[in-house]
Amino acid sequence: MPEYMEVMIRTIVAFSLLLIGARFLGKQTISQMTIFDFIAAITLGAITAALAYNVRLKPHTLVFSYIIFVLVIFMTAFISTKSRKWRKFFAGDPTVVIQNGKILESNMRKMRYTLDYLNQQLREKEVFNIDEVLFAIIETNGTLTVLKKPQYRNVTRQDLMIATNPESRLPIELIMDGEIIEKNLKENKLPQTWLNTELNNRNLHLKEVVYAVLLANGNIYIDTYRDHLLAPIDKE
Rank of each mutant, 00 (worst) to 15 (best):
E3M: 14
M5T: 12
M8Y: 12
V13R: 02
S16Q: 00
L18K: 01
L19S: 09
I20P: 00
G21R: 02
G21K: 02
F24W: 11
I30T: 09
Q32I: 09
F36W: 03
D37W: 05
D37E: 15
A41C: 10
I42V: 15
I42F: 15
G45Y: 12
A46F: 04
A52Q: 04
A52S: 15
K58M: 11
Y66I: 03
M75D: 02
I79N: 04
T81P: 01
T81A: 02
S83R: 05
R84P: 01
K85F: 14
K88H: 11
K88A: 12
K88D: 10
K88Q: 14
T95P: 00
T95Y: 02
Q99C: 05
S106E: 15
N107K: 06
M108F: 04
M108E: 07
R109Y: 08
K110I: 11
R112G: 08
Y113M: 04
D116G: 11
D116I: 13
N119H: 13
N119T: 04
Q120P: 00
L122N: 06
K125E: 14
K125Y: 00
E126D: 13
D131C: 01
E132Q: 15
A136T: 10
I138Q: 07
I138S: 05
I138C: 12
T140C: 09
N141S: 13
G142E: 10
P150R: 06
N154C: 02
R157D: 05
Q158V: 08
D159P: 03
M161D: 12
T164G: 03
I172N: 05
I172D: 05
I175Q: 04
M176T: 07
D177E: 15
L185W: 03
L185Y: 04
K186P: 00
K189W: 01
L190W: 01
L190G: 03
W194M: 11
W194F: 14
E198V: 06
R202E: 13
H205N: 14
K207M: 01
E208D: 15
V209N: 09
V210H: 02
Y211C: 02
V213C: 11
L215R: 13
G218W: 09
T224Y: 05
Y225M: 10
R226M: 06
D227V: 03
L229Q: 14
I233R: 07
